[in-house]
């Protein structure tokens, strides 16, 4: 029995959102101009993520050299202090993190035009400063932003979101409490299309419910894309204004 009323009969979730509402979504790019070629800082609810893109650059290891396309390397650093309770282990080399890294590489390999940068390495370094559920989706969004900042060619945005299923009601953009209490799905969507670049289902979800979950998930991801797009356009306008002022 959950200690909480996860979804009240009046249709409100623990944190006061309705079933189809996103959390606060704030992002900025070019936050670490000195330290990287592309960077972003994303706050999605209480997830706080710094992403640095370095490259395309000369690979350090020969094994990373591919004559036909760039290699993509993604490291996720989940800090020990990112959760309520401090964790004793640094999460490096944890199976869950390695899996997440693989999933991220797979997602972006297909969406970045790697063939334009042969014999190079694109290194993406992510620091999760704070997490509050739906972390995989937030990672994808933050990578998309940082890659765009770095100017590396991509086909389209990849925007992602997690959806929980409470009884028969899908809940958009779950936080930790919701994530722990119900089955969740994370999906990544390409641009404004309904093409999924990632679908991660780690718990059981009845097949007959999956459709409604995907429907609200895609709508949510489109909304995330829109929010990212707004921020990018704002940032670009600001930069243009600054450079023309000079």
């Amino acid at each position: 029995m959950s200690r909480f009323e996860l979804y009240s009969p009046e249709g409100l979730r623990l944190d006061g959102r309705r079933w189809n509402e996103l959390r606060r979504f704030e992002c900025s790019i070019n936050t670490h101009a000195h330290a990287s070629d592309g960077s972003s800082y994303l706050e999605q609810g209480n997830n706080k993520i710094v992403t640095l893109v370095k490259g395309p650059q000369e690979p350090i290891l020969r094994s990373q050299l591919d004559a036909t396309k760039a290699s993509l390397n993604i490291t996720v650093n989940i800090t020990k202090f990112s959760k309520m309770e401090r964790s004793k282990s640094s999460h490096k080399n944890e199976r869950r993190v390695l899996e997440m890294q693989t999933a991220l590489v797979r997602t972006f390999e297909k969406n970045v035009m790697l063939h334009l940068y042969p014999r190079t390495l694109i290194d993406i370094e992510i620091h999760v400063l704070q997490q509050d559920g739906g972390i995989l989706g937030s990672l994808i969004n933050s990578i998309t932003l940082a890659l765009i900042d770095s100017g590396i060619a991509m086909y389209d945005y990849v925007s992602a979101i997690s959806i929980g299923l409470y009884d028969t009601t899908p809940l958009l953009d779950v936080n930790t409490l919701e994530e722990n209490a119900m089955s969740t799905v994370t999906l990544g969507v390409i641009g404004k299309s309904e093409k999924l670049s990632l679908l991660s289902v780690e718990d059981k979800i009845p097949l007959d419910r999956l459709e409604s979950v995907l429907a609200i998930g895609i709508a949510g991801a489109h909304r995330v894309r829109e929010l990212m797009d707004n921020e990018l356009r704002k940032h670009a306008a600001h930069r243009v204004a600054k450079s023309s002022a000079k």
Binding site: H32, N46, F81, S82, L129, Q130
Partner: peptide
């Protein structure tokens, strides 16, 4: 970092950056 009891983020002009959390 509201999750921590204390936190700070310091950025030097050369781009060095460091984040501290106290729990």
């Amino acid at each position: 970092l509201p999750n921590s009891n204390g936190s700070s983020r310091i950025i030097a002009s050369d781009g060095s950056e460091c984040i501290v959390s106290v729990k």
